[in-house]
């Protein structure tokens, strides 16, 4: 149903427009006075609406999809088995995984029977969708909270395995890991 067009009639005072300008100027003066006195406050967060990066950082939500990290389990063993499911499902085809068998003496470092020899994410292709995190059968890859990813060259934007593990250690130290996923309770009565 189309809305009928109503021609707004301007009163005489409205059509002069000067009074409307004055009302607007009162509003902007209020904003100006508030912010002017706010700008003298101590600390980097002076004006309430502005986050003055780099001194003043905002709190990031725990489910933010930022820079990736490869997870370790409670005993410190790598969870990734190098299956390559994340590489298969990635829409941008930016993950490269190479699988290798776990040798005899190295069982304390890896949780499974195989591990990933090379794991490379091309950050310039990645769209941070989170499919790799959802599809990993071992919950070995997670998207963390890193967002300061700018670099000078293309080579520095490739995430190798060391950088992925380093991200995990940093997140663990600063307590920024996501809480463990809890299975939803199935309803007991399925007939209704």
């Amino acid at each position: 149903m189309a809305k009928p067009v109503v021609e707004k009639k301007y009163s005489f005072l409205d059509s002069i427009y000067l009074f409307e300008i004055l009302k607007g100027m009162v509003l902007t003066m209020r904003h100006f006075m508030f912010n002017f006195f706010a700008s003298f406050r101590p600390g980097p967060h002076t004006i309430p609406t502005t986050w003055q990066y780099p001194e003043d950082r905002r709190e990031i939500s725990p489910i933010f999809r930022g820079e990736h990290m490869l997870m370790l389990d409670e005993q410190g063993r790598e969870l990734c088995v190098g299956c390559g499911m994340c590489a298969k499902i990635c829409p941008a085809k930016c993950i490269t995984v190479e699988m290798a068998k776990v040798k005899e003496g190295e069982e304390s470092k890896y949780a499974g029977k195989t591990h990933c020899k090379n794991f490379n994410i091309d950050l310039l292709r990645c769209i941070f969708c989170g499919f790799c995190e959802e599809t990993c059968p071992k919950s070995a890859i997670e998207l963390g909270q890193g967002y300061e990813l700018s670099r000078f060259t293309k080579e520095e934007c490739q995430l190798g395995k060391e950088r992925l593990l380093k991200n995990y250690h940093w997140a663990k130290k600063n307590n920024k890991l996501k809480p463990k996923k809890v299975e939803a309770e199935q309803p007991k009565d399925k007939k209704e």
């Binding site: 902007t28 904003h31 100006f32 912010n35 700008s39 002076t46 004006i47 609406t49 502005t50 003055q52």
Partner: peptide
């Protein structure tokens, strides 16, 4: 600076004080 303070943001504050 006036424009910035009217628009709820700081305006230039790196080149010298304010």
């Amino acid at each position: 600076r006036g424009a910035a303070l009217i628009q709820d943001r700081p305006g230039p504050n790196r080149a010298g004080l304010f």
